[in-house]
């Protein structure tokens, strides 16, 4: 009862349905997107496994998740039943948008899934391997146009990191931003740009069909079912992962945090969660506790550096 009183006092918002649901999960994105699907899959697995009786998902889309994050940090402070889904894209968005609320204002619980970034060219391209691409970049960086997601997102960051690692000026990277995977894919297939860079799932079926040639994936290890080297194997010492995570509200007690972590861990190891990952093609990269905190801090620092190098953040 004390917890509930505290929650009501701190947030002050009666709109918080703390009585009706065991957990509320905020998806800081529109219905249908990756974060929304993560939240809804969690909802299903939480109830199917009996970890939580009644789970509600709320969508608060906008600005790379920073709008949802700001609302969550303000309204749900101290609420031990509130969760928010997020990911690497949020790290970049917080920096480029100069968001007043950062991940330090919530309580990160665990990393759930991860996806490798893929670098592809259309089948008709004269670029056969990553080495060919590197040679072209070194010859004339601006002549290589990259199609990917929004500026400052994980695709853009990876392109910048590749340039930096091979020793060309990241500000010269000719990055063309598209609003969604679909539009970028159309530009790549239509031969409008030199290379495409985006999450592997966006390209997987085209690679399988032979319409696109995979030059490399950004993960530490090869992606199962996809025939292509990692960046490291192809000679670029770099690994990037577009991960998704779950965080809890700020201002909760260590005991509450431990309880939530236990629930999330039970979720992540459950059969229904694993089955859902299988059907959606997500890779389980579960990580919690101090290891996750360390990795998160490292990612934030690296992202800030590269965004400054590209020139998107001052």
């Amino acid at each position: 009862m004390n917890k509930l009183l505290l929650a009501a006092l701190v947030s002050g918002a009666l709109s918080m349905p703390a009585f009706a649901a065991d957990y509320t999960i905020l998806a800081p994105a529109a219905p249908g997107g990756g974060w929304d699907q993560t939240a809804r899959t969690m909802q299903e697995a939480f109830t199917a496994e009996g970890i939580s009786g009644n789970v509600q998902v709320t969508n608060v889309p906008g600005a790379g998740g920073t709008i949802g994050l700001a609302q969550f940090a303000n309204q749900d402070a101290g609420n031990p039943n509130a969760l928010i889904v997020g990911g690497y894209v949020m790290v970049g968005a917080i920096l480029t948008n100069m968001s007043p609320v950062t991940l330090a204002d919530v309580t990160p619980i665990a990393r759930l899934t991860g996806e490798a970034v893929a670098i592809v060219v259309p089948a008709a391209s004269d670029i056969q391997t990553l080495d060919d691409l590197v040679a072209k970049l070194k010859e004339n960086t601006g002549a290589v146009s990259w199609a990917g997601g929004s500026a400052g997102g994980v695709d853009h960051i990876t392109a910048g990191l590749i340039a930096k690692t091979i020793g060309v000026d990241p500000t010269q990277v000719n990055y063309i931003a598209y609003s969604g995977g679909g539009e970028a894919l159309a530009a790549i297939l239509g031969g409008q740009v030199t290379v495409g860079i985006s999450g592997i799932s966006e390209f997987a079926s085209q690679i399988q069909a032979g319409e696109l040639r995979l030059l490399a994936v950004s993960s530490d290890e090869r992606v199962p079912g996809v025939d292509g080297p990692t960046l490291k194997e192809a000679g670029i010492d770099l690994a990037v992962q577009n991960w998704r995570m779950v965080a809890a509200a700020p201002g909760i007690t260590p005991e509450q945090k431990a309880a939530i972590t236990a629930d999330v861990k039970a979720l992540a190891t459950s059969a229904s969660w694993k089955a859902a990952l299988e059907t959606k093609g997500w890779v389980d990269t579960y990580l919690d506790g101090e290891a996750f905190d360390t990795q998160l801090a490292a990612d934030i620092a690296a992202t800030e550096t590269i965004l400054k190098d590209i020139g998107l953040v001052q």
Partner: peptide, 16 residues
């Protein structure tokens, strides 16, 4: 946010 450069335009500091 300008899609090509990620810079904000005419947002007057309002997150929304």
């Amino acid at each position: 946010i300008d899609q090509q450069t990620g810079q904000t335009r005419l947002a007057f500091g309002v997150l929304d």
